[in-house]
Design a protein around this nucleic acid. Structure first.
Lengths: 235, 235
DNA sequence: ACCCCTCCTTGAACGCGTTCAACTTGAGCC
DNA sequence: GGCTCAAGTTGAACGCGTTCAAGGAGGGGT
C-alpha cells in the first residue's frame, strides 16, 4: 500500500550499476534525513555530500538539482497521508466527514514540517520547478492524491450531479492545494485556523454540492464545468 | 492619481541627506529599468551596482535585500492597473462587465512581464517575503488594489446581500490573486486561457452573487462569511 | 597482459545574494 | 583652518547551488 506510487514520472536518473544505485540511495537517504532534521533551506548540498561521504559533484550526477532531491519526499508524504486518512474512510459514509477527514489527515501529515514548509513552498510555487504540484515530475504523487479524494467521494452517500461527479475528485484536490496554501501562511498556534477552515468549510461544500442538482444552480454548475474543461489541458 | 500610493508601509530606509536620497533613487531607477529589461532573476545585484556606478554594498545600505528593490515595482504596476481600468469603470454599470474589465486590465498591465513574472512569483509566494501579496510591506499596493475592486462594485447596479457586500471587495481581490496565480502558470499563447477564465467566470460570479439573496443560498453565504471573519485576522 | 570504454567520482571554479570592517565625505562647530 | 561625527561608500569575503574538465574503477574483448 505504501510502495505502489513510486516516482516513475521523472524519467531515468543514472544508476546503471549496483555501485551506482547504492551511491544514489545513500545520497537520497542522507538528504531526506537532513531535510527532515534541519529543513530544506538550511540543508546545503555541501553538507549533504559531506554527511554522505561523497563529493558534491557526485550528488549532481544522480540528481539534476537540489529540488529533485525532495521529490521523493512528496511520495513519502503522500503515502503517509493515505495511511492517516484510512480510519475516517473506513468509518463514515458522510461526505463532509470524509472530505474533512482526508484534509485533516493531509495537514496532520505535513504538520511536522510546517516550520520549513515555507522554505520550499516558494520553490514549489515556481511553475517551472519540478516541485510544483502541477508539474509533470510530481504527477505521480498528484495522481495518487487525487485518487485518495476519489475514494473519499465514492465511499460517501452524497448525491451528486453526474457531470460534476466526474470532475469532483480533481476539484477536491484543488481545494486541498488551497488548504495547503492557507496552511503555509497560517501563523496561528498549531495552525488551528487551518483546522477551523477545514471543519467549517467541508460541511458548507457538502451542502453546496448537494444543491448542485437544484434547478436554480444546475445551469451555473454546467457552465462552470464547461469552463473547467476548456481550461484544463495544456495550451 | 499615480502618486497617491507611495510605499509608506515599509518603514524608514536610510536617506538622511540630499546626496543619500539621490544615490538611493539612482539605484532604484537602475534596478527597475534592468528588471523590466532582463527580468528579476537575470538581473544580479552586481550588475545593478555596476550599471548605477556604485559598489554592491552601497545598494545594501539603502535596500535590505534584492526583493525590497522590487517593492516599488508593485506600486508602479498598481497605478498602471488603475489607469487601465478607468475606461471600463466609466463606461458600464453592469457588475460582470466591471469585474471582468478590472481583471482584464490587471492581466494586461502585467502582461509585458509574464516571461519573468515566474522568476519573482516564487519569491512572492514565500509567506515570509516582503513581496508576498499578504505581507505588511505590500499593504500599500494591496489596499489600493482592493479599493479598485470596491470601486468596480460600488459603480455597478448589482443587488448584493448587505453582509456580503461588505466583504466583497476583498473577495474580489482574492479572486484577482487567483487569476494571477492561474496566469503565472498559463502557458497558452498570449495567455489566452487566462482571458477565457476571466470572461466566462465573471458573469458566473455575478449570477452567483445575485443569487446570494435567495432563501436557499442565504444561510450558506452567512455561514461562509462568518467563517471568513474568523479566519481573516492574524493569530 | 593489455587496451577499451562506459560508469562513476572528484574538487576547484563560477556567479549569485549578502555581510562587514574599514574608509571617505562633508556639514556644523570652535 | 582644523575637529568631530554621522552619513555614505567601498570591495573583499562568505556560503550557497551548480558546472565541468579531469581522472579512477572495473568488466569484456583480444
Amino acid at each position: 500500500m505504501t510502495e505502489q506510487a513510486a516516482t516513475t514520472g521523472a524519467g531515468a536518473e543514472p544508476a546503471a550499476t549496483a555501485r551506482g544505485a547504492q551511491t544514489r540511495q545513500l545520497i537520497l537517504d542522507t538528504a531526506l534525513r537532513m531535510f527532515k532534521e534541519h529543513g530544506y533551506a538550511a540543508t546545503s548540498m555541501r553538507a549533504v555530500a559531506r554527511e554522505a561521504g561523497v563529493a558534491v559533484g557526485n550528488a549532481y550526477y544522480y540528481f539534476p538539482s537540489k529540488e529533485h532531491l525532495i521529490l521523493r519526499f512528496y511520495d513519502d508524504v503522500q503515502a503517509e497521508h493515505r495511511a492517516a486518512a484510512a480510519p475516517v474512510l473506513a468509518g463514515s459514509t458522510e461526505f463532509a466527514d470524509r472530505l474533512a477527514g482526508v484534509l485533516h489527515a493531509g495537514v496532520d501529515t505535513n504538520a511536522p514540517y510546517h516550520a520549513f514548509a515555507t522554505s520550499f513552498f516558494k520553490v514549489a510555487a515556481d511553475p517551472d520547478s519540478p516541485l510544483s504540484p502541477f508539474s509533470a515530475e510530481s504527477a505521480g504523487a498528484r495522481q495518487a492524491s487525487i485518487a485518495l479524494f476519489a475514494e473519499a467521494l465514492d465511499g460517501s452517500t452524497i448525491k451528486v450531479d453526474a457531470q460534476l461527479r466526474e470532475e469532483l475528485p480533481e476539484l477536491m484536490w484543488l481545494a486541498y492545494m488551497g488548504v495547503i496554501l492557507f496552511w503555509v501562511h497560517d501563523r496561528s498556534p498549531g495552525q488551528r485556523k487551518t483546522y477551523l477552515l477545514i471543519d467549517r468549510a467541508a460541511p458548507l461544500l457538502a451542502r453546496l454540492i448537494t444543491m448542485s442538482r437544484l434547478p436554480v444552480l444546475r445551469p451555473l454548475i454546467r457552465e462552470a464545468l464547461d469552463l473547467l474543461r476548456h481550461l484544463r489541458h495544456r495550451t
